[in-house]
C-alpha cells in the first residue's frame, strides 16, 4: 500500500480509512453585495465503506456542502476558508485549492468522487440515451475502448437491477420510470468505481417502496465496493436505517455529530432532540403528539448573533447570545451547545 501523507502527525491507522476530510469549511454566497454564509465552519470525515448521513432542514447548507466538495458551486459563491482533503491512493489532494473546472478537478469528479442528485427526472439529459450518458463517464475516466462502453453500460445497468439492460441501454430517460432513472443515475455514478459517492437526497422525489429499493442498492454498493457514502437527507428514518455516522446541520453549522447510536439514542443538542420529537410514529394513531419545532429558520442575511437555534430553543439561556464552541463529549460525539449536558441528561430519561 502506498504511504499516506498526512499534514499533521496524526496516527496512521486512525486515518487510513478516511476517504475525505473536511476541516472548518466555509462557503459563502454573494448576492447584491450581501453575503449568505451558507456553510459556516463545518468539519467532518467521510470514511471508507461507511455511510455518513447529513441531516437538517431545507436551507441548512447540506447540499451546498456536497456541491462544495465537488466544486459544483454557482459562480457567485466561493470557498472562503477551510480545507477539503481527498485522501487518494496517490496521496492527498486539497480539493479546495483546485481550479473549479480545471483538469485536475475534472479528473476527480466522476472517477474518484461521484454524485447523484435529488430529482432523477431532471438530472438526466432528455436528449441522450442512458447508454450514451453512462459511456460519457467511461470515455473520460477509463481506458475502455468505444466498443466496450456499451458492454460496460449494460453490465452496470444489470448490477443496478434494471431488467432487460440490453435493450434498455438504448432508451431515452423519458421512457424510464422515476425509480429506474435513479438506478440509471447510480449506474452512471458508479461507472468508474468511485471511492466516494455523494447522494444529495436521492429519494426525495421517489415513492416509499422505490426509496427502500434505492437505499438497499446503495447499501449493497457500500458493502461490495467499500465505497464511502455521504448521504444527504432530512428523513430521520433513513438515518436510522443506513447511517454509520450522522452530522446534524443547522444554518451552516454541524450542531451535533457522532455515530448513529450516539446521535439518535443520546441526542445532546436541542435541535437534534426537537427533530427526533417531530417524527410521527407509525402505529401510535392519529391522536399522537407530533411536536413541531416552533418558529422558522432565521433569514440567512439577518442571522441571530449567537447560537443560530437560540430563538427556537426551549433550553435558551443568556449565554446563548454567544456562539457556543464545539465540545467533544466522546471520542466520536461532538456538539455545539452551552447546555449539552442538561440536554443529554434529559434525553437519557
Amino acid at each position: 500500500m502506498l504511504p499516506i501523507q498526512r499534514s499533521k502527525g496524526d496516527a496512521m491507522n486512525e486515518h487510513q480509512d478516511v476517504a475525505l476530510s473536511v476541516k472548518n469549511l466555509k462557503t459563502f454566497f454573494y448576492t447584491n453585495k450581501r453575503c449568505n454564509k451558507a456553510v459556516n465552519g463545518v468539519s467532518f470525515d467521510i470514511k471508507k465503506g461507511k455511510t455518513l448521513c447529513i441531516v437538517g432542514e431545507s436551507g441548512c447548507g447540506k447540499s451546498v456542502t456536497a456541491s462544495t466538495i465537488m466544486q459544483l458551486l454557482p459562480t457567485l459563491s466561493r470557498i472562503e476558508e477551510g480545507e477539503i482533503t481527498y485522501h487518494s491512493e496517490h496521496g492527498d489532494i486539497r480539493i479546495d485549492q483546485l481550479e473549479r473546472n480545471g483538469e485536475k478537478m475534472r479528473s476527480i469528479r466522476g472517477s474518484e468522487i461521484a454524485m447523484i442528485f435529488q430529482d432523477p427526472m431532471t438530472a438526466l439529459n432528455p436528449v441522450y440515451t442512458i447508454g450514451f450518458q453512462i459511456s460519457e463517464s467511461l470515455k473520460y475516466h477509463t481506458d475502455l475502448s468505444r466498443s466496450q462502453y456499451r458492454t460496460r453500460a449494460i453490465e452496470l445497468l444489470r448490477d443496478m437491477g434494471i431488467s432487460l439492460p440490453e435493450s434498455r441501454v438504448d432508451d431515452y430517460p423519458h421512457s424510464y420510470s422515476g425509480g429506474m432513472r435513479q438506478r440509471a443515475m447510480i449506474a452512471m455514478a458508479m461507472s468508474c468505481s468511485p471511492k466516494i459517492l455523494i447522494a444529495d437526497e436521492p429519494t426525495t422525489a421517489l415513492d416509499v417502496t422505490i426509496q427502500a429499493q434505492i437505499f438497499e442498492l446503495m447499501d449493497k454498493l457500500k458493502k461490495e465496493h467499500g465505497t464511502a457514502i455521504m448521504l444527504i437527507t432530512h428523513d430521520m428514518g433513513v438515518v436510522a436505517e443506513l447511517a454509520d455516522e450522522v452530522a446534524v446541520m443547522y444554518m451552516g453549522n454541524i450542531v451535533e455529530a457522532g455515530t448513529v447510536d450516539e446521535v439518535l439514542r443520546n441526542p445532546t443538542h436541542p435541535y437534534t432532540r426537537a427533530l427526533l420529537a417531530s417524527i410521527p410514529v407509525l402505529g401510535k394513531g392519529k391522536n399522537q403528539n407530533v411536536e413541531a419545532i416552533p418558529g422558522s429558520t432565521p433569514d440567512p442575511y439577518d442571522r441571530p448573533k449567537g447560537c443560530q437555534f437560540a430563538d427556537r430553543c426551549a433550553y435558551r439561556i443568556a449565554a446563548c447570545d454567544v456562539m457556543p464552541d464545539e465540545t467533544q463529549i466522546g471520542s466520536t460525539h461532538r456538539v455545539m451547545c452551552w447546555r449539552h449536558e442538561e440536554v443529554g441528561a434529559n434525553a437519557a430519561e
Binding site: 465537488m70 479528473s107 466522476g110 460519457e136
Partner: peptide, 8 residues
C-alpha cells in the same frame, strides 16, 4: 450539473 459532476 450532472454532466459537470461526471468530470466532462
Amino acid at each position: 450539473k450532472t454532466a459537470r459532476s461526471k468530470g466532462l
